[in-house]
């Protein structure tokens, strides 16, 4: 039954889309087609769908490992940016070296960069008891400013007419393209491998089991001797590593250089993906495809419907609201009852 509510939520989001489009004075069916169908009605569209789903599923699987254990890392967007900075620094530093080791080194640097950024809230949580929601989120803003400094300062392209951007990466620093005529690249394999590893860790390993126990029954985990600190560290570092890889995927993939912004909010959207995917690997893959479609639909809406692409964020938020509401009707049985007259009786 737990898997019904994401479907209900998706259906309600589509329905709300129809209402929203007509409220905005568009023909609802035509708009619906332009938003949800047109973006993926050719191979290029399908390739774009997979391309945008990759960072979403990467961030979401990493977050899910933490969320299952009650570790609320909501700073994936910042960890993604630091992963991109780490990989980008290597790409620019070894530009033209043409070594086949450059891309693997960038992947490793990205994962480590993301982990380093996630280690800060993990350390502050385990050592000083500081709320990881707030610290990880504050670090998103710090990471964005760090990226801004990097592209304005040390890594600015000297031949870039003073634009805040790095030089375009050498081919050796880019994921090879998979399909001629599309932007789909080998980064999707990295995403798929990480999702598979995440599935194995969460469902088949003892470490994943201890994390689940910690999330479901904190006291039971303590009684069993599972370290609460270890839970925080594993949850945070898994999220950081995966988000860092997503950052590499962006700069070594569709973007191909460092820009002042390397993600349209994938790290935040991944929170929704993780919940809609029920913190489960298979669900996360499906949810990331849906979320990717919302991004593509937003772009399509801007081009064909003359609606701002920010409409994507509206749909993302609605999806999560509907999911939370649908969960209620699955967790609880509704009973129509006369309102209790006095609270004393209701408490009985």
């Amino acid at each position: 039954m737990r898997f019904v509510s994401p479907l209900v939520a998706a259906a309600l989001t589509f329905a709300a889309g129809l209402v929203l489009f007509s409220a905005l004075g568009r023909d609802p069916l035509a708009a619906f087609h332009a938003f949800f169908v047109q973006p993926i009605d050719d191979w290029n569209g399908v390739a774009e769908l997979a391309l945008k789903a990759a960072p979403l599923m990467l961030c979401a699987i990493g977050l899910a490992i933490g969320f299952r254990a009650g570790v609320w890392n909501i700073g994936a967007e910042g960890q993604l940016a630091v992963g991109a900075i780490a990989a980008g620094w290597l790409a620019v530093g070894f530009h033209g070296a043409g070594s086949a080791l450059l891309l693997p080194a960038m992947v490793a640097a990205g994962a480590l960069g993301g982990m380093a950024w996630a280690a800060i809230p993990a350390f502050l949580k385990t050592r000083f008891n500081a709320n990881e929601i707030l610290t990880s989120l504050m670090l998103v803003y710090v990471a964005a400013l760090l990226l801004s400094w990097v592209v304005h300062g040390p890594l600015r392209d000297p031949q870039g007419f003073n634009f805040p951007q790095s030089k375009e990466f050498h081919d050796a620093a880019l994921y090879p393209l998979l399909l001629e005529g599309t932007r789909l690249n080998a980064g999707v394999f990295v995403a798929a491998a990480v999702v598979a590893a995440g599935w194995w860790f969460m469902e088949r390993s003892f470490g994943g089991y201890t994390m689940r126990v910690a999330g479901l029954a904190d006291a039971a985990a303590r009684y069993a001797g599972f370290s609460a600190r270890r839970t925080v560290w594993v949850g945070m570092l898994a999220g950081g590593a995966a988000a860092g890889l997503a950052g590499v995927g962006e700069v070594a993939g569709p973007i191909g250089q460092l820009l002042p912004s390397v993600s349209p909010g994938y790290g935040f959207a991944a929170i929704i993906v993780a919940f809609v995917g029920r913190l489960h690997a298979g669900g996360i893959v499906l949810a990331s495809l849906l979320m990717s479609l919302l991004y593509l639909g937003g772009e399509s809406a801007q081009m064909t419907l003359d609606l701002p692409s920010a409409i994507t964020g509206l749909f993302q938020g609605m999806l999560l609201f509907f999911l939370l509401a649908a969960d209620v009707f699955i967790s609880y049985r509704l009973r129509i009852a006369a309102p209790a007259r006095a609270p004393r009786e209701a408490a009985a």
Partner: peptide, 22 residues
């Protein structure tokens, strides 16, 4: 509806960012 407060609060922030931008 007794939804999780942390999840619903995050949803509200994400929704607000999207709605206000739109």
């Amino acid at each position: 509806l007794m939804a999780n407060q942390v999840a619903a609060g995050l949803a509200l922030s994400l929704f607000g960012v999207g709605l206000s931008a739109f």
